[in-house]
Design a protein around this nucleic acid. Structure first.
Length: 568
RNA sequence: CGGGGCGUGGCGCAGCUUGGUAGCGCGUUUGACUGGGGGUCAAAAGGUCGCCGGUUCAAAUCCGGCCGCCCCGACCA
């Protein structure tokens, strides 16, 4: 590609509102341009990178035995009503109407479409197992897009769906996708961490996320500093402390006028928040649930939902007042009406003589003890893990919080969608059964941002070869010099003939501009042809990643470039 | 949606407090020079100051409303 004829607008300065390196460098380097919040155009350079990433993903999906399809973006409302997600999927899908006022959504994910597709053609167990995938634009009405390509309303995703006859088929398909993902990130040079995760709106079990550790990520994982435990913060578990000696009481009612928050109560009573038990009232279906966690902890609603069963929501203020007879802020486990399920975090078991709300306005109890003053219906892990907590998996480690970018996610769906959308087959005994599904997503456009976060320096991007927009840039420093131009022209032709992707910068621009732009855009290898080395007829090669330089004869240049690329 | 910040040539910013001529750097165009790290000189083009309304003789500046963008938080590839 000739730079003089290419569309590669670079910026000397990044727009002020771009903060993280990937956003700034992708804008400056002429890879992307914004259209609106969380909506970007891929310019030629950006599209080349995106295509490289897609290629790696596609090759590994094919290797794993999946078959590529391309599904529609427009999904009829009726289909989403059959799965029950038209009104419940979060974030709410973008919705549109056609001229006859039929509703559609712009596909945020494709469980419904793929299941409906397979359902129509699935007959016999002989048709299974099968895994289909696509690489396509997805639309999500994100609450807040951010960080350039990190989080967009419109983004490119690879989504795969497996259909099997049994749990065993699912396990095989899941493992194949999992291994494929490991290979994808290896090939792209992204050192991902695989963590336990929540399923979110998709649903399912055995969910794992592939995370790239990065300060500019928007997720948090907890990793044990001693064993291999790693989990998304939204489901990480800490080891509860051992039980203490029983408390002595006695329980006493103390006045705590207007002290509704943990800070106010502990301040008034002069005790630490770790001496207080918070009582959070929830509604699980028709029942009330009182969830107990230590005063300095936060409750994890995912965890509570798992043990509480039924649709979980926080109780309304009026419900709390009717149940406890007190204003919000004074609820406690002592003397709650029958029928309220008390679920306590494991950590409570190690507390004694603690403080709780008294279920009366402006009053708390001190000296409260489990088994003496109230009974716990169910013990569970309810609290959010914290940096420095003891690891639940090993004896010695502590959990370390790390920021990260979620690049991929795998789930075992089971038969939720196949039952709702009649994706059934006839088994060997003539019985009709629902296909057992899995789903597997990769954030393709997000990977582009992640690569830049991982591979950049002060001067620009340092793409790994597998994702670089071009493998080599030739910088002809004196375009008017016939002799030098001939050398550069020949090198360009030779590299092209060798199948190498090369950008030939023969523009009438100053050397400084060419150097700065080449560093910014981040070609793995740079070949410079200028007067400095003309006498010897040499070409200067430089590797972007580490600045390693060498001088080579023209005749040896292609081989030397290839050697450098091997290591890039 | 809650909190915070910002909207002035393509980009980065000043001007706003105290109303009166729209300014600087980069980029762009033309010419010349230069040719190993965003080079030099000269000339030029380019802005209804986010939008609507109000106050005023007069609004980028003061007031009200709206819109957009970015950052922090709750959801997700």
């Amino acid at each position: 590609m000739l730079a003089s004829r290419y569309y590669m607008p670079t910026l000397r300065e990044a727009p002020a509102d771009a903060e993280i390196p990937s956003h700034r460098l992708l804008l400056r380097g002429g890879f992307i341009r914004p259209l609106a919040a969380g909506i970007f155009t891929f310019l030629p350079l950006g599209l080349r990178v995106l295509s490289k990433v897609e290629r790696v993903v596609r090759e590994e999906m094919n290797r794993a035995g999946a078959h590529e399809v391309l599904m529609p973006v427009l999904h009829p409302k009726e289909l989403w009503e059959r799965s029950g997600r038209w009104d419940t999927f979060a974030p709410t899908p973008l919705r549109v109407q056609d001229r006859s006022e039929r509703w559609y959504c712009l596909g945020p994910t494709h469980e419904e479409v793929i299941t409906d597709l397979v359902a129509a053609d699935l007959g016999s167990y002989r048709d299974l197992p099968v895994t289909l995938y696509q690489i396509q634009v997805k639309f999500r009405d994100e609450i807040r897009p951010r960080g350039g390509l990190i989080r967009c309303k419109e983004f490119i995703m690879k989504d795969a769906y497996s259909f099997g006859r049994s749990r065993e088929d699912l396990d095989v398909a899941y493992d194949a996708m999992f291994d494929g993902y490991v290979r994808i990130f290896e090939r792209l040079g992204l050192p991902v961490v695989v963590v336990e995760a929540e399923a979110g709106s998709i649903g399912g079990t055995d969910t794992r996320e592939f995370m790239l550790l990065s300060e500019n990520g928007e997720d948090t994982v907890f990793m044990c500093d001693s064993c291999d435990y790693a989990s998304n913060a939204e489901c990480a578990t800490a080891r509860p402390p051992g039980a203490e000696e029983p408390g002595e009481g006695p329980r006493e009612l103390v006045a705590t006028p207007n002290a509704k928050t943990v800070e106010q109560v502990t301040g008034l009573l002069g005790v630490g928040a770790d001496r207080l038990v918070k009582t959070l009232v929830y509604r699980a279906g028709e029942r009330f649930v009182a969830a107990l966690v230590r005063g300095d902890r936060s409750l994890n609603e995912f965890k509570l939902a798992r043990v509480a069963r039924g649709d979980l929501r926080m109780a309304e203020d009026v419900e709390v007042q009717e149940l406890t007879g007190a204003r919000v802020g004074f609820a406690g486990p002592v003397g709650l009406p029958d029928g309220v399920t008390i679920i306590a975090d494991h950590e409570i078991a190690a507390m004694r003589d603690f403080v709780t709300g008294a279920n009366a306005d402006d009053a708390h109890f001190t000296g409260v003890n489990v088994g003496v003053d109230f009974e716990v219906d169910e013990w569970a892990d309810l609290r959010a893990a914290c940096h420095g907590d003891a690891c639940a998996q090993c004896e010695t480690g502590t959990l370390q919080a790390r920021r990260c970018i979620e690049l991929a996610h795998v789930f075992k769906l089971g038969t939720t969608y196949s039952e709702a959308l009649n994706a059934t087959f006839t088994d060997g005994e003539g019985r009709e059964q629902a296909a057992v599904m899995g789903c597997y997503g990769v954030g393709v456009s997000r990977i582009v941002a992640a690569l830049v976060e991982q591979y950049h320096d002060d001067a620009g991007i340092t793409w790994p070869r597998a994702a670089a927009p071009f493998e080599v840039a030739i910088l002809l420093l004196s375009p008017d010099d016939e002799e030098l131009r001939a050398i550069a022209d020949n090198l360009y032709a030779d590299l092209l003939a060798a199948g190498i992707e090369v950008l030939y910068d023969e523009r009438d621009a100053s050397p400084g501009v060419k150097f700065a732009e080449a560093d910014l855009i981040g070609y793995p290898v740079r070949a410079v042809i200028g007067r400095k080395t003309r006498e010897e007829g040499l070409i200067e090669l430089r590797r972007r990643a580490d600045g390693a330089e060498q001088l080579v004869e023209s005749a040896a240049a292609v081989a030397a470039v290839q050697a450098l690329l091997e290591q890039a």
